[in-house]
């Protein structure tokens, strides 16, 4: 499955790109699986996702928990806790 990933704030800075399209292996089912998969792609991903529990995920621009299946996702947002307002 091909999916567009979009990164924000320090996740974006550490991975050093705002977005990319990646091919997700079939073994990746949930958001948590995706984060663990990304961590294997290089040290910049390892640095960005070192503490996966603090990372927030959005599928098709809606917040989801890490155990949410990513099947059928067009776009997955990966970012730190929000600090707007």
């Amino acid at each position: 499955m091909k999916v567009k990933l979009v990164y924000f704030a320090w996740v974006r800075e550490r991975i050093d790109k705002p977005e990319e399209e990646i091919e997700v292996p079939e073994t990746v089912v949930t958001g948590r699986d995706l984060l663990n998969h990304l961590k294997t792609l290089g040290e910049e991903y390892e640095a960005a996702l070192q503490y996966p529990d603090v990372i927030r995920l959005a599928i098709n621009q809606e917040h989801v928990d890490h155990d949410e299946p990513i099947t059928g996702a067009r776009e997955i947002g990966i970012f730190p806790p929000m600090t707007g307002g």
Binding site: F8, A58, P80, P81, M82, G84, G85
Partner: peptide, 10 residues
């Protein structure tokens, strides 16, 4: 808004 709207401050 502070906890759920996707904004980040640097």
């Amino acid at each position: 808004l502070k906890t759920a709207a996707p904004f980040w401050k640097k």
